[in-house]
Design a protein around this nucleic acid. Structure first.
Lengths: 208, 208
DNA sequence: TTAACTTAAACAAACGTTTAATTAAAAAAA
DNA sequence: TTTTTTTAATTAAACGTTTGTTTAAGTTAA
């Protein structure tokens, strides 16, 4: 992929995350990317296909999570949970624009194919986490929990922070325009919270 | 508010939740509501004001949560948490269309006023929950937790289930078209999960 | 008789996409 | 190396739709 194509994709990503897919015009993208309007059709074919190209371009980061998780098979269940949280929080908050697009755009996306592709990735993610938890249960260090919703809680908490940025900027007295500062403060905060949360939630000694 | 106005709002709500604000045309709304195109401008003034009217119409359900929470001051902290979860899960999943619109549309909404209104409601919600947790800590039954993110986890888990419906329908083998059945199964499932989660997370005996 | 409601038609603006002409770059031929 | 040919990149302009909104004439109900 040429530099120019990637540049267009990144401009589109920013605009989609700020104004939504339908709220962003092709002229907007071309203008902010500094290219002629017709170049977008020339390169990508259509606005819909540009979105598909963006998903293709970025979905590497999701695959990256799965691959890194599969290394270090020797870790203990607790260490794996910690690593899982570190990986997800880092990857998602460093790709928060794309993550915003996925959570916002996906439910309204018309193309069945795109929706299936993304659901497929999520299912793979889920099964990976499920494997870790099941192993911890087999080793008698994790207790019985609602598998689907435990994963939902981890993903949901991270999503909540990226989607309700306004709220948390206000609650934590962070300057509204300091995007970088928000993430810098939030990343360790989320990691600590999720680790403490799962430690209590999964610990077999906390059974009742 | 007349029946016809409410009917238009409810049609708009469904379409917005399915296709997004910008993905829904005024002609779409008029057509599905069975009214003339011009009636929407006549009743609401503009598409943007129709959205504002919808928010106004539905935001009663958020206020309702806060009011019901303030009753029964005599309950124990643990009972209040249980009641909190029951209230939120019921209200949000029975208004899931509106909740989808809020989470998806809010980050991209241009009007500062609408965004501020909604953030305001969320802040009130947060402070209400904070009060419950703080009281539990004062009574030495809850431990120290990350206040903002504990609330974020509860909201995020519920949001996750309403936004990633596709995923959970597949994980739980629920028919894709059975909207009613999905909620019927999900509501008690989320309640149980969140109660178990918070029980472990907040319990002062689980400190380490 | 007055006010509220309803309609079909029209409006200008914005939309995604295509066209046809031009320039720049790469490949082939001299 | 220079010249010619071919391919790729870029442009301004225009295309036909669809958009949100308004108009002006009509109907219904108070």
């Amino acid at each position: 992929m040429t530099d120019k194509r990637i540049h267009i994709l990144e401009v589109a990503e920013r605009l989609f995350s700020e104004k939504g897919f339908d709220g962003t015009s092709v002229r907007d993208i071309a203008g902010q990317a500094g290219v002629n309007l017709a170049m977008i059709s020339y390169y990508f074919g259509s606005k819909e296909k540009l979105m598909a190209a963006l998903i293709d371009h970025r979905s590497g980061y999701t695959r990256g999570i799965l691959e890194e998780l599969n290394k270090d098979e020797l870790l203990s269940p607790w260490d794996k949970i910690d690593k899982l949280i570190d990986l997800y929080v880092d990857k998602i908050l460093n790709n928060y624009k794309f993550h915003c697009i996925m959570t916002q755009h996906l439910p309204t996306v018309q193309s069945d194919e795109i929706r299936e592709t993304i659901t497929e990735i999520k299912v793979l993610n889920f099964e990976q986490v499920k494997k870790i938890i099941t192993e911890g249960q087999r080793k008698k260090v994790f207790r019985k929990v609602d598998m689907e919703l435990t994963v939902g809680t981890v993903m949901g908490t991270i999503t909540q922070v990226t989607l309700s940025k306004n709220l948390y900027q206000r609650l934590l007295n962070i300057d509204k325009n300091d995007e970088e500062g928000y993430r810098k403060k939030m990343i360790p905060k989320i990691k600590n919270h999720l680790k403490q949360l799962l430690k209590a939630h999964l610990d077999i000694n906390n059974q009742e």
